[in-house]
Nucleic acid binder design. Structure first.
Lengths: 254, 254
DNA sequence: GAATCTTTTGGAATGTTTTGCAAGATAATA
DNA sequence: TATTATCTTGCAAAACATTCCAAAAGATTC
């Protein structure tokens, strides 16, 4: 194993467990504690970690819905299940707005046969269909937000304001009984425009989003038609959402 | 196995596994570690790898993150030379419109340090900068034209009509003394909008485009400020273009 | 087709970096 | 303050990189 690889694995491991002791890390990457120490110092300088006595912790928010990497294995099987379940909700021949966000990305992967028209501001989604010509994909214009691979800015908002679609499939950072919130303020305006443009609103939220609140409020529950989540969603909140008139679908565990 | 093939296999292998040790690579391509070392040095210079102690790592695990590798190796070295020469034409701090097309794609690869603002309708170009945050990239909206990864349609035309930029770097299908032509009728309207939006017009055309005519006329030579081509361009036509007041730059053979 | 030149390849000698260990220094805890 | 755990520093061994060289493989010339 190369030094590079080892550091990468340390980061990946910490991404999963959030905090780990030196011993734990050393064992995981099969190196001495000295080496891990040195690695941690350089990684800390790079800015993703914070060393503590006896171990290290990641700085980056552990589950950022919109930080896109296809290598993201975070709640992967749940997201896949949600993707499948969500696609089954859609009839054929519909125009669909797809939000950016990792969960919705997994919806897109199953969408190829269903939807003839997809509108999105997500580069990863666009790339997904860039070589397949079954689907017509419309990409909203805008400024590329680097880390996320999302198009943002007034151009994007304007593009969605001028559109009409049957369904919008959305991501978000958190959901409570007070409504839906998101962490990236830049995206809020765009998401609002998406909500206005679509007749039916579906939110795809894995169970970790339940009971969480992010900084920026996006919309109330009255806007939402359906929520697709996985089977580990907290039952209490699910029941409460249903009494509020929101359809909640639990994707079966695969 | 040829050297070319070997390097290609190294790249392909790394594309899959992200990291690999020298031993691992040497075994995979059935060559000595010395040879692999040399290969890695040249591949690193080409920009796709990064050498590390004990092995190598790909710089962009583009596999599916923002995937869109232009596998096109047609006239590669010429296009690279044109790319370099073209970038040297640009001062710093400029807004640049980038046309879609493989030649212009190679310009983009050298543009990172120069231009703070890039406007394009090309997905490959967008992907190139999607993870780098030195450059601000504006992507025009539109419908994805599958095979080419280009955004087309009225939305795209409108986006460019509303813009102003210092320079437009363009591709085309052919150039003669009668003007510049292009084969994709869908792109003509967009390219015209680009030309109108920019103050200075640069065309990047490898030597095979000289003396060729495609179906759709794009613009006359009076619109063109500069043409960047490679050293194999026919001297007669180059001279004739110069008498017409067009600056023609021959990128030196590398 | 032979002879010569150029390029590429694999290995050996020589530097450089990384690694793991141990000893002293520093911080946490009672 | 004593005690323990964790951290830094210095060092030798190992792993790795670089440079140089001779043999092999191609390309060129006659």
């Amino acid at each position: 194993m190369t030094a590079e690889e080892r550091k990468h694995r340390i980061e990946a491991y910490l991404q999963r467990v959030e905090f780990a002791s030196l011993e734990e890390l050393a064992q995981h990457v099969e190196a001495s504690t000295s080496t891990v120490r040195r690695d941690l110092t350089t990684l800390e300088a790079a800015g993703n970690l914070r060393r503590t006595h006896g171990g290290a912790r990641i700085i980056t928010p552990k589950t950022d819905e919109f930080a896109f990497t296809s290598r993201d294995t975070h709640q992967l099987s749940e997201k896949e299940a949600i993707g499948k379940a969500c696609v089954e909700l859609l009839g054929t021949n519909r125009s669909v707005i797809l939000d950016a966000g990792t969960t919705v990305y997994h919806v897109a992967r199953y969408l190829e046969e269903k939807a003839p028209q997809i509108v999105t501001n997500s580069l990863p989604v666009a790339n997904l269909f860039a070589s397949a010509n079954k689907v017509e994909v419309i990409l909203a214009g805008g400024v590329i937000y680097p880390r996320l691979g999302v198009l943002v800015g007034p151009m994007t908002v304007e593009a969605f304001s001028k559109m009409r679609a049957d369904v919008a499939i959305m991501s978000a950072g958190g959901i409570t009984l007070e409504g839906i919130t998101n962490s990236h303020a830049l995206l809020i305006d765009i998401q609002r425009a998406m909500l206005k443009a679509a007749q039916k609103i579906i939110f795809c939220l894995d169970h970790t989003k339940f009971g969480r609140q992010s900084v920026s409020p996006l919309c109330g529950l009255d806007m939402v038609d359906t929520i697709v989540t996985d089977s580990r969603a907290p039952q209490g909140l699910v029941a409460a959402l249903r009494t509020q008139g929101v359809e909640v679908i639990l994707a079966p565990h695969t």
